[in-house]
Simulated assay, not measured.
Amino acid sequence: MVRTSGTTGQDAPNRTDVSLIAHRGFAGVYPENTVAAVEQATAGVAVGGRPEMVEIDVMPTADGEIITFHDTSLGRVTDAPAELADRKVWETPYETLAELEVLGTGERVPTLDEVLDALPSEIGVNVEFKNPGSADVRPRENLPPEARADQKALWKDFAEDVLSTLSGTDHDVLVSSFAEGALAAVREVEPSVPLAAVFADSIADGMEVARRYDCEAVHPPWNMIADTALFNAEYGSLGPYEDIDLVEIAHEEGRAVNAWTVERWYEADQLRQAGVDGVIADYPGVLRFGGTAAD
């Protein structure tokens, strides 16, 4: 299970043991969601040392393989020809995907099995459920009661496949998603797997979802953390947010707080001072300055 020792928030004001989570395998320096990214991110040769956990994204192919891939279409991440650039990943067979190059690096799109095999056993894995193979998913929503059963059903087969793959690994596992349906499906298929609700639009709505599925962690964007200079700072289309101290509330309820996606040491230091438990980062050195680096 996910490493949660010491992350309930009871001693948050004086904490320095912030976990470093490699976002897509430190996507700022390595080709995201690839075997090479996982290998390089966990080699410990970069400034800042090894992460405690690697975050990867998963979705299915047309023929049922589980791959690590973030976008719904192929164009940004791969060298797919023009006629394939806008094709949905889940409409593409793995045989086609396996021949594509990721971000001009010579790396190819891997399966979840391949990524897990490349990950050292002592490093945890945060598996983010991106899409089960459908345009009908409803991410970033606190679903109304009448929609919850259908959304759970939409994710259930994919959840069973991913959890079956994860059951054979020795890694600590944390499953996260923006989609309430994914969290519901995982809870039903394997209740013991730790969950993280990924927040985007509302602190109150996000906490309702986290409580509904008793999530062990919450994953807010870095500009959602109150009592920092980062709170409601410009970050794409995210925010402004309610004046709610998410870290305090989450810790009172025993939930860890891992903030995404951190790119600068200043952000990491502000978040550390606010008491977050982990930073999901694109670069390995973000915890090196401003306090005691995580081991």
Rank of each mutant, 00 (worst) to 15 (best):
R76P: 11
V125K: 08
A41C: 01
E190R: 13
T96A: 08
D113F: 00
T7V: 05
R212Y: 15
A200S: 13
V257W: 04
P240H: 03
I280C: 12
A46Q: 15
A256N: 00
P144T: 10
A135T: 15
V137D: 06
A85V: 11
A226E: 10
L116Q: 08
G181V: 05
A82D: 07
L163Y: 09
E52Q: 14
M1E: 15
N131A: 10
L163S: 09
L103W: 11
A185R: 00
I280P: 02
N126H: 11
G28N: 01
L74K: 09
F69H: 13
V125L: 06
A233R: 05
P132W: 04
N232G: 05
A294F: 06
R140S: 02
L287F: 04
V35D: 04
A22I: 04
D269P: 01
G278F: 11
G44R: 08
D243P: 08
E101W: 04
G181A: 03
A182R: 13
R212L: 15
V45T: 14
G104K: 03
I21H: 13
V186G: 01
V2P: 03
W222T: 02
L74G: 05
A196C: 10
T72F: 14
E252I: 08
V109N: 01
E252P: 07
R187K: 15
T7D: 09
R264S: 08
N126S: 12
L163R: 11
T228R: 03
V209A: 07
D57H: 00
A85Q: 14
A62E: 00
G124D: 11
L97T: 08
S237V: 10
I67C: 09
R50A: 15
E114W: 06
P284W: 09
E91A: 15
R108P: 05
V189A: 13
L238T: 12
T261F: 09
T228S: 07
K156I: 07
D113P: 06
R148T: 08
P60M: 03
G48C: 11
V189H: 02
S176E: 05
H23E: 04
D150V: 05
R138F: 06
I56V: 14
W265C: 01
D243F: 08
T4F: 11
P81K: 11
E190K: 13
V35Q: 06
T61R: 01
W222M: 10
L271K: 00
P81G: 10
A281G: 04
D277Q: 07
R15W: 13
D282E: 14
A62W: 03
N258T: 08
A268E: 09
L84S: 03
T261I: 05
L74C: 13
E95C: 02
D157E: 15
T169E: 02
E32A: 04
L154V: 02
A200E: 11
V115N: 00
F26E: 11
F158A: 05
D172H: 12
A43R: 13
A256M: 15
F178E: 03
T68C: 15
D201I: 03
L287W: 01
P132F: 01
V173K: 09
A274F: 01
D269Y: 07
Q151P: 01
D136R: 12
A98D: 08
L163N: 10
D170S: 14
L84I: 01
P110Y: 05
A185D: 02
E216D: 13
S164W: 04
S237W: 07
V175Q: 07
L119Y: 14
